[in-house]
Amino acid sequence: MEEKVLNLLGLAKRAGKLTTGEELVVKSIQNGKAKLVFVANDASENLIKKIADKTDYYKIRMTDIFSSYELSNAIGEPRKVIAVTEKGFAKKMGELMSK
């Protein structure tokens, strides 16, 4: 399951359907563009809280099941926060994580 989600993240990256980096992800959450947000489970407590507060307020699903290494490896660049901005990718990843 996790491997499939990470593969989909890489695919979404190549399709240009991701926003990465703290500031850009926060903006995409506020703009309503983010459909699903990944936060590394080894990110700082402040970062996790900030993203959790934003996603709660804007009613966007957030998950922290992956480490920064796994997330970075999946998209090919070092990142701790990733927002999926395309509904189809977000839906499929959500279904896989619910199993």
Rank of each mutant, 00 (worst) to 15 (best):
M1D: 13
E2P: 00
E3A: 14
E3Q: 15
V5H: 10
L6R: 02
N7C: 01
L9K: 13
L11C: 01
L11S: 13
A12K: 01
K13E: 13
R14S: 13
G16D: 11
G16R: 09
K17A: 15
K17D: 15
L18Y: 11
T19C: 04
E22H: 12
E23A: 09
E23H: 06
E23L: 07
L24M: 08
V25H: 08
V26G: 02
V26N: 04
K27H: 09
S28R: 04
S28N: 08
N31I: 00
N31T: 03
N31Y: 04
K33G: 03
A34Y: 03
K35F: 14
K35H: 13
V37G: 03
V37Q: 07
V39Q: 09
V39H: 07
N41V: 00
N41G: 02
N41K: 13
N41D: 11
N41H: 08
D42P: 02
A43C: 07
S44V: 00
E45V: 11
E45R: 07
L47Q: 06
I48W: 00
K49A: 12
K49L: 08
K50G: 01
K50F: 02
A52D: 12
A52F: 09
D53N: 10
D53V: 06
D53P: 02
K54Y: 10
K54I: 00
T55P: 06
T55F: 01
D56T: 03
Y57K: 14
Y57D: 03
K59Y: 09
K59G: 06
I60N: 03
R61N: 06
R61C: 01
T63C: 08
D64T: 07
I65R: 04
I65V: 11
S67H: 10
S68R: 05
S68H: 06
L71M: 13
N73Y: 10
A74L: 13
A74H: 12
I75C: 02
P78T: 10
P78L: 10
P78A: 11
R79F: 05
V81E: 14
V81L: 14
V81R: 03
A83W: 05
T85F: 04
E86R: 10
K87F: 14
K87N: 12
G88V: 02
F89Y: 15
A90C: 12
A90H: 11
K91Y: 12
K91G: 01
K91P: 00
K92H: 10
K92R: 15
K92G: 05
E95M: 09
L96A: 09
K99F: 07
